[in-house]
Design a protein around this nucleic acid. Structure first.
Lengths: 361, 361
DNA sequence: ATTAGCACTCTCGACTTAAGAGTGCTAACG
DNA sequence: CGTTAGCACTCTTAAGTCGAGAGTGCTAAT
């Protein structure tokens, strides 16, 4: 869009004033903001033209003007100052991502709640594993004659376990045999290849008479299926209520119920590259429920396999630059922490290593 | 409180009408509800007396009457029909508690969300472990020269694990040694008794030069501390917005922010016996924020050690009998499922056993 | 003791009005 | 020709007015 320099300035001022005040801004307000270098009458003319161009709108004849979706778009693309996060804020974010309370839900969760707190909008976080998950290794721990533990190491370096109680006694040697057979035939294969045929043949190979093989296989399948699922968390939903556009309970509720539907959230726009911030404004959203809300998402990648999204949803009247900067910073932090965070370094100069708790459970 | 039979009937009708309609009920409404066996004038007199007794209130001179907190109390204690849950509802509850999606948060979580859905009020669920948690057994699995897995079995039959990466190679024999030493000195003791002195002496006994003992000890402490924590979940907060008393956003927000404070929630009234339903009405609550909300809680016990609370918070105008019945049923279900749910039965007549996923993680 | 009747009170929505904000237009100016 | 001062006009919003409706309390009759 080719706008005169003056129109750009005026558009920017209107957007910024409106974002801050949540009320239509009039020609006079713009004039004083500009230090009265231009008269309000001139600004009136310019604003009328900006309205013709579809960048501003008038809620009613005798009110100031507010940006249209297109106006926000121009602002975001061309006029917005890309602000850097302050070093103080950076420290807060680092601190909170680093010192998450143990036993709490995972890091991604924490990132979501951090995002919603820092932006005062509802945030959602989703972590997806795009690579194929397989079991790298099985171990079976004999506890007592009626109890053993299944321990599996996945190819993404997480450990999962299950305690199994039996009603018939089990021979420790059987567990050893099970381990070697499962390690031979169930490791390194994706969930689709754990077929009933494989289970049956394994059962025969083990000489299993008490149905222990299907149980282990079932546990394995469950793990692998679960690791495929994209799980999404939404936090800070009630932040909505702080913003005047959601004083209307029904409006708030419509958005809230939209936000609590995971399948809908999965359809939100995804940034195509790691670190990229994607801003979708009002009607640019496919979902009708979001036609006057904006979505800002940022993607973070961890290695090649894992990628995740953090996003914030709020009214179109949003502090785009601030939100984008903070999200972006959080995403960076996540990439770093997730890449190296839960591997414990030992044996060097006795550094004060931190425990990751991702796999505890 | 000694009330004439007629006053009791009138009070009951007023409460029930008001609970349903959310609007003050007048003498005429009561009369028609009673099939006009008594005239509205008589009822007016009775209602005036009930107001003098402090059981009814008038929002303003020319409106109907609404129950006071005391009125609700009398209703709950003396007049309420203790309704049984319908068999259809029971089935729904059973089904949802049984078929929770794998990989989802725990059963308690599910129970909370079930409670909020069935009652249309915000619900909170909290599970507390009152017994002392200790480690029953350690195992260390050698993965490769720089990696091993810590597997611990707790005395409450859950398994926790952690993957440890090392920067220096480790000898498998060291792991065997570690296992025997940790099993000898770290099992069966509560977190308080894992002192720095114990860690130091263990380190010497192992001949640990790479700082591996403190890491394992640290993990252990973390586990035991975590197992002590009471974690509380609140679900369905947004249900509030469906109820007319929370059309006022500020009021809703005050309660919502109260609900998101775990430490406040921990102070809510607790039923003293398992299965008991405790109802706290409006100003009976200690917290000022709850002065016009009611809290219904029910306790469930699992064995001797674990006990938990499920509660529902809503406006004083609440369907007490319905909520109490449903909560009570959910609590029963939880007790049963938690007592036996995650132990897998094997080796009998090949029953179709279900996998519990509480410890998978 | 109960009830019909009635005057009284209070809320609520509809309507009116005045103030205020902001605009668009016209005419004057450099 | 672009800019600006001035002004009539429009529209929203808050405050005030008014009447209908609901429900009460009281009185008097049964």
């Amino acid at each position: 869009m080719n706008l005169s320099e003056r129109k750009k300035i005026i558009l920017r001022v209107v957007v910024e004033q409106y974002v801050q005040m949540a009320e239509p801004v009039g020609s006079k307000a713009v004039a004083t903001e500009l230090g009265s270098s231009i008269s309000s009458a001139t600004i009136r003319n310019e604003m009328a033209e900006l309205e013709l161009l579809g960048l501003l709108e008038q809620p009613h004849t005798s009110a100031g003007r507010i940006p249209s979706a297109l106006g926000y778009r121009i602002y975001v693309n061309e006029l917005m100052m890309h602000q850097k996060i302050s070093s103080g804020e950076a420290q807060v974010i680092n601190h909170m991502l680093g010192n998450r309370p143990p036993g709490q839900a995972g890091l991604v969760d924490q990132a979501g709640s951090l995002a919603s707190r820092l932006t005062t909008y509802p945030a959602y976080a989703m972590a997806a594993v795009t690579g194929v998950t397989t079991i790298a290794r099985f171990d079976f721990i004999f506890v007592d004659s009626h109890t053993f533990i299944i321990v599996t190491l996945l190819n993404n370096d997480t450990v999962k376990n299950k305690l199994v109680h039996l009603t018939v006694p089990i021979d420790p040697h059987l567990l050893t045999k099970l381990a070697s057979i499962f390690n031979a035939s169930f490791t390194g294969i994706p969930e689709e290849r754990i077929t009933q045929a494989l289970i049956n043949s394994t059962e025969r190979a083990v000489g299993d008479t008490i149905g222990i093989v299907p149980v282990i296989a079932g546990f394995t399948i469950e793990l692998l299926v679960e690791s495929k699922s994209v799980d999404t968390r939404v936090t800070g939903t009630m932040n909505l209520l702080n913003h005047p556009e959601y004083r209307d309970i029904d409006k708030a509720q419509r958005l809230i119920s939209y936000l609590s539907d995971d399948t809908e959230l999965a359809r939100l726009p995804l940034p195509s590259a790691s670190g990229e911030v994607k801003i979708t404004i009002g009607p640019e959203n496919l979902a009708a429920e979001l036609k006057d809300t904006s979505v800002i998402t940022v993607r973070y990648d961890v290695g090649e396999d894992v990628q995740g999204i953090i996003g914030v949803i709020g009214p179109t009247r949003m502090e785009y630059s601030k939100v984008a900067a903070r999200l972006s910073y959080i995403a960076q932090g996540l990439s770093v922490l997730l890449a190296g965070g839960d591997k414990l370094q030992l044996g060097l100069e006795g550094e004060n290593s931190k425990l990751g708790d991702d796999d505890i459970g």
